[in-house]
Design a protein around this nucleic acid. Structure first.
Lengths: 244, 244
DNA sequence: CGAATAGTGTCTTTAAGACAGTATCCA
DNA sequence: TGGATACTGTCTTAAAGACACTATTCG
């Protein structure tokens, strides 16, 4: 129930009329409002490592520290649209995996004012990905999630949470495929699992299990690199999503 | 990064100074802010049914329709504290299971103004529970999740989401115990599973599986009701949380 | 033919599921 | 002793895990 109760105080002056609402005697400015931001945790598997994109803060608070990219939500855009906008401000990829992660809103988490942040989680495949050559390249960088710098705000907690969500979903969803290009070898897929779960897996059991689900389609092509037998290239078959 | 960019307009007049923030040249009123509410989906297993507590709206919008209880977040309380406050406004139970569910914030979901709602999910055990005799008993009621009235806002979508979360977590967490009193029979536990998953389960396999995990402790007591053999009473052993 | 990675099969163990009869209490 | 629910065990099937050798390519 988004009902007006009488506990809070009116601390804001009223603004321009919002026709229908005001016709019903509803004053949208009756309560003091927190700021709402959307932060986007962008992860990718690169260089045999699970990495996250961070930006260096250029002003108070936490000036010079690294932080998860984010920004205010516009009044007329959905939370997901705000997340997509942030994503495009930092990278130039589209159609990435994007889900809402959690909302963090403890008073005091931001010294400026009360800030509630809705955190989204994006997974980028290493191939299509290139970070925008923003103002200053030194201000936007990939970091290993296993070796993070000191982080601004409560962002260390947020990354912990993102990693555990990723690990959980890896087991019962097809989330891993969003970290790979369209075609990939079984070994590459296994590496994604191993890097995220941070443990080695048995090659034979892994292949058996994945192939048994029927979510992979043999492309007929092969990937040759180095001086050894080439590997088959597979592609994810979304039609067989159900299994796993 | 909760960084001030220059895209949005300054539509609010500044308020009283917030010392540290303003000393750093940060103006907390630079952006128009959405309203933030916390809604709490309260569910319980009662009368062999999974039920949710709803309140009847007394004013525009959606006047007379049923809605999930909720309210504005105070500037100095955490989101979880706001949820606990809502919980206590409607019921008089403490120490209930409470988790954050999801944040809904589409523009237009509330005709009054932009409202972003952080939804929490509470599970109440049927024994301790009694709804507060609020202003008017007819305005607060339990409904079967399998037979809901028309709901205000996007609340039908929210309840769908809550139910699927509950079903998912039932399988790999000990969430079911928060719907039962301290002592319960295996049959009662099985009924909780059956009611939530909406399917019958085999008694022998269910008991075998639950007992094998070691999360139950035999109290030595028995529950007698009706003219038949009494059932053993168990209690949940949180020390053995890991299994399941 | 040596180096390097791709690719394959069997056995064991564990968990899940199908299935029916005996035990205990009360009236 | 009849009615009602508690309680129990075996067999089958499927999934997970341990484990080692052959195949193919390039230089």
């Amino acid at each position: 129930m988004e009902e007006v109760t009488s506990k809070q105080q009116n601390r804001e002056a009223s603004k321009k009329p919002q026709t229908e609402a005001q016709a019903h005697g509803y004053d949208p400015n009756k309560y003091e409002r927190p700021s709402v931001t959307v932060d986007v945790v962008m992860m990718s598997v690169r260089q045999k490592d699970l990495q996250v994109l961070l930006v260096k803060r250029r002003s108070w608070p936490y000036e010079g520290m690294w932080a998860i990219p984010g920004g205010f939500v516009n009044m007329d855009e959905s939370l997901e649209d705000a997340a997509k906008r942030e994503l495009q401000e930092e990278t130039n990829v589209e159609n990435v995996y994007l889900e809402q992660l959690y909302t963090f809103g403890d008073p005091g988490r931001d010294p400026r004012t009360r800030v509630i942040t809705v955190v989204y989680f994006a997974l980028l495949d290493s191939e299509r990905l290139h970070v925008k050559a923003a103002s200053d390249a030194a201000d936007v960088r990939w970091f290993s999630v296993y070796n993070l710098p000191p982080l601004a705000f409560d962002h260390a907690k947020i990354l912990d949470y993102a990693l555990s969500r990723l690990r959980g979903k890896l087991e019962y969803t097809t989330i891993a495929f969003s970290l790979l290009p369209e075609q990939f070898t079984l070994r590459e897929l296994q590496h994604v699992y191993e890097i995220i779960l941070n443990k080695e897996m048995d090659k034979r059991n892994f292949r058996k299990k994945i192939l048994a689900t029927g979510i992979l389609e043999d492309t007929g092509e092969r990937k040759m690199e180095g001086t050894h037998r080439p590997a088959r290239l597979y592609r994810f078959n979304p039609a067989a999503e159900h299994k796993l």
